[in-house]
Nucleic acid binder design. Structure first.
Lengths: 135, 135
DNA sequence: ACTTGACTTTACGTAAACGTCAAGGTAAAA
DNA sequence: TTTTACCTTGACGTTTACGTAAAGTCAAGT
């Protein structure tokens, strides 16, 4: 089996993910990650890194830390009850709808950006050639 | 020319966009919209509606009100100077990169959701058929 | 005349996601 | 041994995007 038992300090993690230690501790305080300890100091494993990657992705997509925590909780609780599976299915459905809306927004914005850009370039061309003419 | 000179009260606008009047006034306070007045009361035109639509889209995409305001300012200032056009081009480029990242995130998340959903359904099937067996 | 309803401003409150000291513990390097 | 570089927990400060009274204006309805 492929397993990495390498561990990391909070500083190393902070540099790797371009976060402050404060943020990482805050995520733990909010129940998003559960690093183990050696005495007082936090020790991060590969699993914790995976969680952090997911957290950051969620944040980029506009999820709140509380929402991310809920998703983690659902994913973590061994999904054996039919009830839990159903709520999970429902959650994925609504999230998918939100994401689809975001996709639509992005496509519309991209189209507008293309528009703006094209007009900008036209204007620029016009300006520069006019300047050549009046030189 | 197609022009609608219809005007709207803040309450009408609020209902139409599913916002509170408070939010709409706040957007004005932040310089995002500039409705005209009749005496004291705000009067909203079609142009203001367009702005609001853009504001909401921006928000869905995770832009702050300040960022949206900057974009509006750039778009509003008559784009005649070459300098302004260049900065606008640069802005569209970086925004496009951010959006591309969001697209990647969404795609990855969608794939994972598909995964989760499939496994959920499998589990559910297993559970229900098992229940049929033990009945 | 009075109430209702929609609008106004002013101003304080709030939740989220950290930033920023403060004050101290530990461990290795100089 | 003292400095240096991390780590720890508190605890208060900050920004964003509003919510939520409080108190007043104004036109319309009864």
């Amino acid at each position: 089996m492929t397993q990495s038992n390498q561990t990391f300090s909070i500083g190393e993690i902070a540099r790797e993910f371009e976060l402050t230690p404060r943020s990482i501790r805050f995520y733990e305080e909010q129940g998003l990650i559960h690093p183990s300890r050696e005495g007082m100091t936090r020790v991060y494993s590969h699993k914790d890194k995976v969680r952090l990657k997911l957290i950051l992705r969620g944040k980029r997509l506009g999820f709140s830390l509380a929402e991310i925590r809920n998703l983690f909780d659902l994913y973590d609780t061994n999904p054996n009850s039919a009830e839990q599976l159903k709520t999970l299915l429902h959650l994925t459905k609504t999230k998918r709808e939100v994401l689809q809306l975001q996709l639509n927004d992005i496509n519309m914005l991209m189209a507008e950006l293309n528009d703006v850009e094209a007009r900008c370039k036209e204007e620029l061309d016009a300006l520069t050639s006019e300047q050549r003419g009046t030189k």
